[in-house]
Structures are given as C-alpha cells and as structure tokens.
Design a protein around this nucleic acid. Structure first.
Lengths: 132, 132
DNA sequence: CTCCGTGCAAATACTTTGCAAAGCG
DNA sequence: CGCTTTGCAAAGTATTTGCACGGAG
C-alpha cells in the first residue's frame, strides 16, 4: 500500500500528527490541527482512530487532564509533568522509574505498564505570573 | 458543631465512607453505598462534596479508570495498581517514589504532587481466569 | 462486488449547575 | 434573618455509535 493511499490518508495523518508534536494532545486538538489540511475531517474519525491506535499499542493514553483524555505518540515509558495552570503536559527526560520498584510490585499481579506523573506549575506559568 | 449535626450528616457520611473503604470508589459507588442509610441522598450531593473535599485536599483524585473518576481518602502519597480486567484499584504498600527522583524534576516547574501507578491484571483476576 | 474508512447526526455516559426548600445559628 | 446544604431535574461536555456513501482491490 502506498503511503499516500487515499484510503488511509486521514488515519496516517492522525498518527503522524500525534507523533510529531510534543504537546500530548487531546482528540479535539488533533481534530482542529488537521482541519487545516483536511477541511472535511470528522471528530469521530479522530476518536475512532485514536481508539484503534491505542488498542494496538501504537500510541499511549496519559489519562485525562481536566476531564479530557490526552495521548502520547511516544510509547517508550517516560515520566510526565502536568501543569495545573495551563493543563500542559511535558516529558521529563532523564527521569525514570527504577527497575527494582517494578519488581516489588509483582505481588499484586502481572504488571503490564506503569506511569509516573508529577503535577504542579510549569516554569512558563510561573514566569507569566511573575511578569503580571 | 456536633458530629451528628443534621446539616452535615451527608457530607460527613461521604467522607467517612471514602475513608473507610479500600476500593478507591467512584462517585456512583459512594452514592449506591449511602443510599442504604440515606434513602433520599442525591448523586449531585456526592459529586458536590467530592469536589469540595478535593479542593480542600481532604481527599485525592486518582484520575479516571474507564472514564470514571476514582477517589482516595488516603491523602498520603502512595503507589497504586490498577487492574485492567476488573477496574479495581489496589494500594501498593512498601513501595514509594524515591526522594531524589522528585528533586530531579524541579527543572520543569514547582512540583506539588506526584503519582505512580502500575497497570496490569490483579491476582484475583488471574486466579479467576485459571479456575475457569 | 465486497470490504473498509469516513462524515454526519444521534445517542451515551459521566458530571455539573440552577433553583427552590429546609436546616442551623 | 442570612448563609449553607441538599434533592431534583435540566444542562453540559467529552466520547461513542448507527448508518449510508464512496474509494480500493
């Protein structure tokens, strides 16, 4: 199948969009972004494809921020920082969940994944507040 | 104010309920539970009080599991295990996020809290499957 | 011709809100 | 009397689903 196959153009666009941004977007964010290129795209298509990607492990859900689900095209385990002010999500590079921690958990069941998230106010929002 | 003050009876009941269970309940779970004692309680009251408790830091939200928000009356930081089969949430005692990890994060902003969650299949669900 | 992806609109499902009644001090 | 809590029903919002159309092989 061609990369530009008309049949999958929107599906591909959604995945590409998700993988080429650092904002850990919501379905709606992707929808708004893709409307520029695909004026007739539907929000349902975005939701449907996100569900499909998630199911296949091609993307990861970070859970909801303010009631809205956020996704990450980077499936490698890494740590996140969520800003309570702007609802932004940042990757925290160089931080990882220690191996031995995961092992300790095995008493509860079979661990398939883990997620470490820090919450607070990001530097950008701190600066914005100081300036004002 | 009396502990049994009629004015706060339902509010108190909600908090007590949350603090005396280990299931990390949803709003609806609490509602169903309290209906036994307060047949006229409203789901809105549960939601309103949960929001209030959360705001005041008296309880903690664990985020959503299958689109439903789950709460924890234990505000001390601790680690959770979420079962993808039964949607149950377990506390993982004896596991903690290393101190030095939190410090590394400060580059991103002011950290106010952190949450570590493991996902997988709990022992109970594993056993149930084996038996079947 | 058959299968799959999609747009649109309707349907869900959880959560929040407006309002009037009632408790407490 | 003024402030707060609550029940009920209505509204809101994010997400899912039914259906028909159109492209690909």
């Amino acid at each position: 199948m061609e990369a530009t196959a008309k049949h999958f153009r929107k599906r591909d666009a959604i995945l590409t969009c998700l993988r080429s941004t650092k904002v850990h977007p919501s379905a709606d964010w992707i929808y708004e972004k893709l409307k520029a290129e695909y004026s007739d795209i539907s929000l349902a298509t975005v939701y449907r494809n996100l569900a499909r990607f998630k199911e296949r492990g091609e993307i990861v859900s970070l859970g909801t921020v303010n009631g809205i689900e956020r996704f990450d095209g980077n499936t490698k385990p890494h740590v996140h920082f969520i800003c309570t002010d702007c609802s932004g999500v940042l990757d925290l590079h160089g931080v990882a969940v220690p191996e031995e921690l995961s092992k300790t958990v095995s008493g509860a069941g079979q661990v398939s994944s883990c997620q470490l998230t820090f919450t607070g106010k990001c530097n950008q929002c701190i600066n914005k507040e100081e300036t004002a």
